[in-house]
Design a protein around this nucleic acid. Structure first.
Lengths: 149, 149
DNA sequence: ATAGTAGGATTACATGTGTAATATTAAATA
DNA sequence: TATTTAATATTACACATGTAATCCTACTAT
């Protein structure tokens, strides 16, 4: 259904999402220069053909504009990924990361906030459950953790 | 550098991870039958060539055994995915799912528990318990028929 | 005006992937 | 034993992908 964007193409899209419209030269400049210009050119062409990018003439070159939003793309990808590897369930994925020590203090804080938000919107009647205090309890502890990867 | 397993191949791996060693016939049986046997055959061959599977003769046919663990594979995939789409940060991904209403009550409960666990092991001040490891990812496990012998 | 050049268009080419069909062979059966 | 057949091995084939090289043409500098 949705447009399929390969890994290499995705890098190009990222450069274009940064700001657009943008011409090939600038896209190349944004890409940390391990990209051969000809390769970028090919990829731009493919993205246009796939209708992931629109392009319009600008003097001797073209200006490219994304036809798909970064957010929608990421959302759809995330969903597919979670479906494929975790049967659509979020918590096993998170468990996985915790297990690998890939979670940092600020992730935890952000997660708490997300949980809180979720509970407020899915449980508007006030019954907030045990999370309400957890939220404040750890308010701002300075991180002193050591995460090595 | 890890072995690359395609989407179709992954489905085969799932069937084999269910229990092994297993012969082609049983793998086919486990796959919800939209798979042509010949296709499965090809994929098994490719997986053997990639050294994702070992095989040993068993009478007229072969028995296949995974050479890579489901958990390791999932972990490595998850990491790549998160790196590519979310710069390695977990919370934006979760935010994404919350945003899409793809999070359910039990996810929230699981998340809370994970947070607790993380805090116990990374922030011993608040000493709750102190188990170091979280549980593993338990993903796609949808058994259908089982022909065991 | 001519030649060099910046840029896009076209072509290339070796894998990888999905999806099988065909060929071969060893085992089961008549 | 001769034949059918279940299983594997080999071959096929179009499209995707990474990675460019070459071709063509309008523009620029002499």
């Amino acid at each position: 259904m949705s447009i399929e964007i390969s890994d290499a193409e995705y890098q190009i899209m990222l450069a274009i999402w940064e700001s657009s419209p943008v011409n090939a030269k600038d896209v190349i400049a944004r890409l940390d220069s391990d990209w051969h210009p000809k390769t970028v050119n090919t990829l731009l062409g493919r993205l246009v053909k796939k209708e992931a990018l629109a392009y319009m003439k600008d003097g001797r070159s073209y200006l490219y504009t994304p036809l798909i939003e970064k957010n929608s793309y990421i959302k759809s990808k995330s969903q597919h990924f979670l479906q494929k590897l975790f049967n659509g369930k979020l918590s096993p994925l998170v468990a996985n990361f915790v297990d690998q020590d890939l979670v940092e203090k600020d992730d935890i804080e952000a997660l708490k906030k997300l949980i809180d938000d979720w509970e407020s919107s899915n449980n508007p009647d006030g019954a907030k459950g045990k999370n309400s205090d957890t939220n404040n309890a750890e308010a701002n502890t300075n991180a002193s953790h050591s995460n090595n990867k």
